[in-house]
Amino acid sequence: MKKNWIVLLGLFPMTLMAQGKKFTLSGNTTQAENCGVLFNYIGPDNQVKKDTGFVKNGHFTFSGTAFDERIMAQVIVFAQPRDYSLLFYLEPGNIQLDIMGDKVKDQRAGTPLNKELQEFVKMENAALDTLNANRKPTAALTIYHPDAQPTILHVIRKYMEKHPHSVIGIDQMVNVARVYKNPPALLAVYNLMDNAAQKSKQGIQVKTIIDGMPSPDSSGK
């Protein structure tokens, strides 16, 4: 949970998207029939916004006005004995979320960015499963673990090769660059991004992080 918050904080609002368009969020979960649900995100004013709702018969809904900027949001389903969360893009349209308590079955759908994010997450899960194949289940790496970051970066590269104009890659790089201090590896992927991605708020953010890292030959040895 704590780590999810950190990811959310790393993904600040970005490029222009849609002026005052409505979103509806329809969620399904098999992990609870009736319980509370929290919907939250960091708005364009950098303030945390949140709303609570109620899961009824495994369903919940929220609606509102999307922002001009690209924003990530999170829902947390307060099932028992544990809660379940999912990150997604808050964008205009009918956002559909399936929270199944299983990273393979969790789904984001219904809107363009969420479809793209879902495809990325699918690739990421497959790569992580391969990475963890020879590890004990108790020692399995999550996407947040520092040792998993080279693999995540590789996934971003693969994703960008398939979708050179997608913003998903640059958004994901913001998280990786915060943890993975390897400027050449990061730059190699960053340079694959198109001009729009590089000049976007996230692109500038990633480049700034990379530029702030000590270069490999500056150790003084």
């Binding site: 949970m1 704590k2 918050w5 009736n34 319980c35 509370g36 929290l38 609570t52 947390i76 307060f78 028992q80 809660d83």
Partner: peptide, 18 residues
């Protein structure tokens, strides 16, 4: 039913009870 969603600021953790 009701649900109490608790927040532990020290550890930035949430829990809940129905």
């Amino acid at each position: 039913k009701a649900q109490l969603i608790t927040y532990d600021a020290t550890n930035n953790m949430m829990a809940n009870v129905i």
